[in-house]
Design a protein around this nucleic acid. Structure first.
Ligand code: SF4
Ligand code: SF4
Lengths: 153, 153
DNA sequence: TATTTTTAAGACAAAAGAGTCTCAAAAACC
DNA sequence: GGTTTTTGAGACTCTTTTGTCTTAAAAATA
């Protein structure tokens, strides 16, 4: 898999948050219910995003988490880097250690192209952009429901 | 990681075989030494390739494994499918089950592009092509050595 | 202050991936 | 036939990933 499960959950939760009223703290329990992700597992993942400065959290009643920046300013890459780290961009097809252009394997040229296209996609897609698209077309964020699950009470 | 470790080892061993005298059986022990891969682990991986009809094996002295087809006819995709299966081409960015164009997530369009570029790379690269490139430029297949390790006795 | 609601932290367990080991079966050679 | 060399099959262990659970700390509210 390209992204770890933690990373995928982190992305889905971030999209959820980008679709909420700006500045409002959303309880993790609410998200874990809507997105059908284990509450404790999601909590652990979002703690990483909080530690990385992508989310901020607040304890107690009316607490929860929220995006620090407007989702428009948050490329998916930020979340991927916070959770999976940079391996995706540094490791490669044949997985040899300490790779680079100085000492490449036969796949390097082709792989570098592919890797760049992954990189570009993650850097050029922002949370808000995807939320707009998802809202407009009622796309889904969970196994069953469409995007509208994010609005239902 | 895009490809599992088993898959990467399978690819490296296949490149090694594509660089050998056509039709000759190469002992797995020889490959595991040269490529610095655990002998037993590599054996298990190559057994999968044999079961899938990509390699054929022969027991006993002067035995080993060899490519069934000329490496020119073997795209990397064959080896990836044999070892990692088709998930790379069917699973996707947000990892939702049963995905497709009928019921996409907000990332689908962008991911589909990226996925196609991965697919194209694996389908359009053949073992022989990469061996030629590796030989011409003495590229590496292991952590330390260059392509010439495949020739040294 | 006591109770409730929430995140924080980390121990713990289950599952999957990676790697090791042993023994059997086939082939060659003495 | 017996020994050696090789792949085949599978049990087994170790590590990483994934997921669960418990307890603590902070904040609100009564
Ligand atoms: S040379 Fe490039 S493709 Fe090959 S292992 Fe290194 S970074 Fe990966
Ligand atoms: S819609 Fe496409 S990108 Fe999204 S989860 Fe499904 S297959 Fe993957």
């Amino acid at each position: 898999m390209l992204l770890s499960k933690s990373c995928v959950y982190g992305l889905r939760a971030s999209l959820f948050l980008a679709n909420q009223e700006k500045g409002k703290f959303i309880p993790i329990r609410h998200m874990s219910d809507k997105l059908e992700i284990s509450f404790h597992f999601l909590t652990k993942i979002l703690q990483q995003l909080t530690a990385e400065g992508i989310l901020e959290s607040f304890k107690g009643p009316n607490g929860g988490v929220r995006l620090v920046k407007d989702g428009r300013e948050v490329p998916l890459m930020d979340i991927v880097l916070a959770i999976d780290g940079p391996q995706l961009l540094t490791e490669c097809a044949l997985g040899l250690p300490g790779c680079g252009v100085q000492n490449p394997c036969p796949l390097h040229d082709k792989w570098a192209e592919t890797r760049d296209s992954i990189k570009d996609m993650l850097e050029n897609s922002t949370l808000t952009e995807l939320v707009h698209k998802g809202r407009a077309e009622n796309l889904r964020l969970t196994a069953e429901s469409g995007f509208d699950i994010l609005f239902n009470e």
